[in-house]
């Protein structure tokens, strides 16, 4: 932390909010679960190596096998290892959730800062635009966007038909619609921050708007941005599963929790566990991110601290 920024810092010192956070068992448990899930997904290749399997290794003679040493969670309808597919699905789902939420937060922050700091006509235009995006019926528009032919947008065919294109597509769509919450939040805070003495002082010293926004305003916004981004991750993972349910999400054979669940729902009578695992993992992840966001909000909120004293 550079010395010049210390006087402007409004949020409680780090030690305090860490303490606050630690007082919230749900938050701590959530973060433990999330770390476990991320670590497990990241270690999927290691798991594959140890057990000498791959998530799309088909074995028709070993369908719907129960848990065993070689397949800890059994196999699916093509004899593929369920645990390996869940881990790889986790990579994709968590990746989508975090990357999309991250990009949406960046976009929202930039737009919110710009609107809030410059104000005037720019602010009016940007906020009107935000209102329009918010007014769009989300799910139907997502359906349309997910069905658009990328070839017609002038993208090359090899790009448009790449195996991971559905991943890029989903992230793009989510970012296009997910930035509004952060933008509104950031704009509102910026509006009040820019009247603060330390900002006015910096302006008087001739700092450029970019510098003021980056060095003086942004650091004070980190906590609300972190909170809203954390909450967004859960929503995005849910959204991915909903789109996959409609057949517009991540396309097989690339596994994601959403399409694993969608695929398994047709087998719900024969192999309920196949539907149970991905559904439960989605549930667990989303609820963890929600609790984490909630706990962070309470821990970072100065007003609440007073109330707890």
């Amino acid at each position: 932390m550079n010395s010049s920024s210390i006087p402007y810092k409004q949020s409680p010192p780090k030690a305090l909010w860490v303490q606050q956070f630690q007082n919230r068992p749900l938050g701590v448990v959530s973060i433990a679960i999330i770390v476990c899930l991320i670590a497990a997904s990241a270690l999927a290749p290691l798991y594959n190596f140890v057990f000498n399997i791959s998530p799309d290794q088909v074995d028709l003679l070993n369908r719907f096998a129960g848990p065993s040493l070689s397949n800890p969670l059994g196999t699916d309808e093509l004899g593929r290892d369920v645990l390996s597919r869940l881990l790889h699905g986790g990579q994709i789902s968590l990746f989508i959730g975090m990357v999309a939420a991250g990009f949406a937060a960046i976009l929202g922050t930039v737009l919110g800062l710009t609107a809030g700091y410059f104000g005037g006509r720019l602010d009016a235009v940007l906020m009107r635009f935000t209102d329009i995006v918010i007014a769009l019926p989300l799910l139907p528009v997502l359906i349309v966007l997910a069905a658009i032919d990328l070839g017609e947008l002038g993208l090359s065919n090899t790009f448009a038909s790449h195996e991971y294109i559905s991943l890029v597509r989903i992230i793009t769509i989510v970012v296009l619609f997910g930035w509004t919450t952060t933008a509104r939040l950031v704009r509102a805070s910026t509006l009040s921050l820019r009247e603060q003495p330390f900002v006015l002082a910096a302006e008087a010293q001739g700092a450029t708007p970019a510098r003021i926004m980056a060095v003086h305003i942004l650091p004070n916004l980190t906590s609300p941005i972190i909170v809203s981004t954390t909450l967004a991750i859960g929503n995005i993972i849910l959204l991915e599963s909903a789109l996959s349910f409609l057949g517009l999400g991540i396309q097989p054979p690339t596994p994601s929790w959403g399409n694993l669940l969608t695929n398994a729902q047709e087998l719900i009578w024969e192999a309920p566990a196949l539907a149970f695992y991905p559904g439960f993992l989605i549930f667990l992840t989303v609820i963890s991110f929600n609790f984490l966001g909630d706990s962070l909000r309470e821990a970072l909120d100065p007003r609440k601290n007073k109330a707890v004293e």
Binding site: G234, I268, G279, F283, V286, I287, N290
Partner: peptide
């Protein structure tokens, strides 16, 4: 409340 928000809707329906 959080459980309700976090549950995938079609999983719940099934």
């Amino acid at each position: 409340a959080f459980a309700g928000i976090s549950i995938p809707p079609f999983w719940l329906a099934i």
